[in-house]
């Protein structure tokens, strides 16, 4: 339910022209009016908080960075290896 409301508020802000994200001496920056379906489709495509939760992990983005940091901290390293970067396109 909360995801629905978060998405809906974001959608309204994006849809309504004249409600700018950046104010200048009280005058908001005008944003273009987009098609009615734009924000709805963006919400369908973008990952929800659960899907994006992996980003909260303090990933090292290479084997070498992980191994070097593990050595420095006397800790084991967890290596997630894929064809295509797991944090990018895999």
């Amino acid at each position: 339910m909360s995801k629905f409301f978060t998405g809906t508020i974001a959608t309204l802000l994006l849809l309504v022209p004249g409600i700018g994200l950046y104010a200048d001496e009280g005058q908001p920056l005008t944003t273009p009016k987009l098609s009615a379906e734009n924000a709805k489709l963006c919400d369908l495509v973008l990952p929800n908080p659960s899907e994006a939760s992996y980003r909260k992990i303090p990933w090292r983005t290479s084997v070498m960075q992980g191994v070097v940091d593990a050595q420095k901290n006397d800790k084991p390293v967890m290596i997630y290896l894929m064809n295509g970067h797991p944090l990018g396109c895999t």
Partner: peptide
Amino acid sequence: MLVPAADTIERPGKALD
């Protein structure tokens, strides 16, 4: 606890495998 690292097998030259 442990250090998390993610990487791809491909490399610009020779792959990791």
